[in-house]
């Protein structure tokens, strides 16, 4: 079984940091606009936001390491095998001839690391799209082209 590319940890970490930053910013704005003018208390301005940022930093260090540790994938002869999850451990088997459509996605951070995400769509209802993050771009494209041959029009 293969692990993802190690740089994916930085992508996840950056994502968490950005999210923490925006949540902190929202809290700061709410504090300055609505809470400070109405209620008086002793905590310095922006303390809540600071806590959120610190929490974000801690999570962005721990979570990607754990997530990476438990993420495995394997391209088998006629099916795709994924194993992932820290608390909820999910194993997915997706046969190639159930693939409807396949995409390679890249967000900003992934582009910086030259990584890509393979998104595989099936006709299923539950978890209809299967995502493999953290693949090197050229490998993801190679995989897409390989799997595309199996994609059939009428998978029902």
């Amino acid at each position: 079984m293969n692990q993802l590319h190690p740089s994916v940890k930085s992508v996840w970490a950056l994502g968490i940091l950005i999210r923490a930053f925006f949540i902190a910013l929202t809290f700061l704005v709410i504090e300055l606009l609505f809470i400070r003018p109405n209620i008086n208390y002793d905590i310095p301005i922006g303390f809540t936001s600071l806590i959120i940022i610190l929490l974000g930093v801690v999570i962005s260090i721990l979570y990607p390491i754990l997530k990476y540790k438990y993420w495995y994938y394997e391209v088998r002869e006629n099916e795709l095998f994924l194993k992932r999850g820290i608390l909820l451990r999910i194993t997915t088997i997706a046969p190639f001839n159930r693939i409807q459509h396949i995409d390679v996605h890249q967000n900003l951070f992934e582009r910086m690391m030259n990584l890509a995400r393979l998104v595989i769509y099936t006709a299923g209802t539950r978890g209809a799209d299967i995502i493999i993050p953290g693949l090197p771009l050229d490998y993801a494209e190679m995989l897409r082209d390989k799997l595309k041959e199996y994609a059939i029009e009428d998978a029902l």
Binding site: L88, I90, I93, R98, T122, T125, R126, G127, L156
Partner: peptide
């Protein structure tokens, strides 16, 4: 069958259990 998932939740793992989900293209979850 579209895809097959084996899911072990935190509590299930302690008892050595797992749930098998079979996904089809039927409408509702």
């Amino acid at each position: 069958i579209q895809t097959v998932h084996v899911v072990e939740s935190f509590f299930q793992r302690r008892l050595g259990l797992a749930t098998l989900h079979i996904d089809t293209a039927a409408l509702q979850s």
